[in-house]
Design a protein around this nucleic acid. Structure first.
Ligand SMILES: [Mn+2]
Ligand SMILES: [Mn+2]
Length: 212
RNA sequence: ACAU
DNA sequence: CGATGT
């Protein structure tokens, strides 16, 4: 059966949810709960009418053919005042891109690429460092940043991108970006907490590209 | 094994 | 099914 999406109009939290369990959590015992399942995320988003700020992000995502943001208010372990980053590769190795979104709103804050000749892990690394640099430049040294990549966390922690990818003329530009990222790490103390996005518990990281 |  | 990584 195709994965269903659930709209909760009235509940402990409202919005589009991606599991029946989550829908139940928001509606069971709530007086006058109003909710319904849909066969696609697109249909759910179309049916949902939330508060105006939320609606703007939903409509923006639809217009740009991106997955609709998920409302994480009901996940007590998720820091809403945070940035999430993720990378995607059309082949691995292959063209790589990465992006960052605010967890609270789903708003996309940056998107880079595709850049030729990368790997999934190089993308995750560049995404994480880009996010750290951006938060610092915005004067937000305490805002947490989420990644789902163990590899990227290790590479940043060690300030060492331990890729196995050979450097070639074709991916020269990408390797220059890697070097810039590592130089930034070596020049800047890590102040923002780097947090693990718990995909099994929470679903795909909000910065995910939705292609799997 | 775990994470992408 | 293939690849990148700890
Ligand atoms: Mn990822
Ligand atoms: Mn992803």
């Amino acid at each position: 059966m195709r994965k269903k999406f659930y709209v909760v109009w009235n509940g402990y939290a409202t919005g589009v949810f991606d599991s029946w369990e989550e829908c139940q959590l928001q509606t069971k015992g709530y007086p006058g709960a109003k909710y319904k399942s849909f066969d696609s995320q697109e249909a759910a988003v179309e049916a949902y009418r939330g508060d105006p700020a939320e609606q703007i992000e939903l409509l923006a995502s639809i217009a740009k053919h991106r997955p609709a943001p998920v409302n994480y208010e009901s996940f007590p372990d998720i820091r809403l005042d945070s940035l999430a980053v993720d990378a995607a590769c059309s082949k691995n190795p292959g063209p790589v891109e990465y992006q960052g979104v605010w967890v609270r709103t789903g708003e996309r804050i940056f998107h880079v690429g595709p850049i030729e000749g990368g790997t999934n892990n190089i993308g995750e690394y560049l995404a994480l460092v880009h996010g750290l640099a951006l938060l610092k430049s915005q004067g937000r040294p305490n805002t947490p940043i989420y990644t789902d990549s163990r590899t990227a966390r290790a590479w940043v922690r060690n300030r060492q991108p331990k890729t196995t990818l050979p450097r070639t003329p074709q991916n020269e530009r990408l390797f220059e970006m890697i070097e810039r990222a590592t130089a930034w790490l070596n020049a800047n103390p890590l102040t923002n907490p780097i947090l693990t996005w718990d995909t099994p518990a929470w679903g795909e990281i909000p910065a995910d590209f939705g292609r799997k």
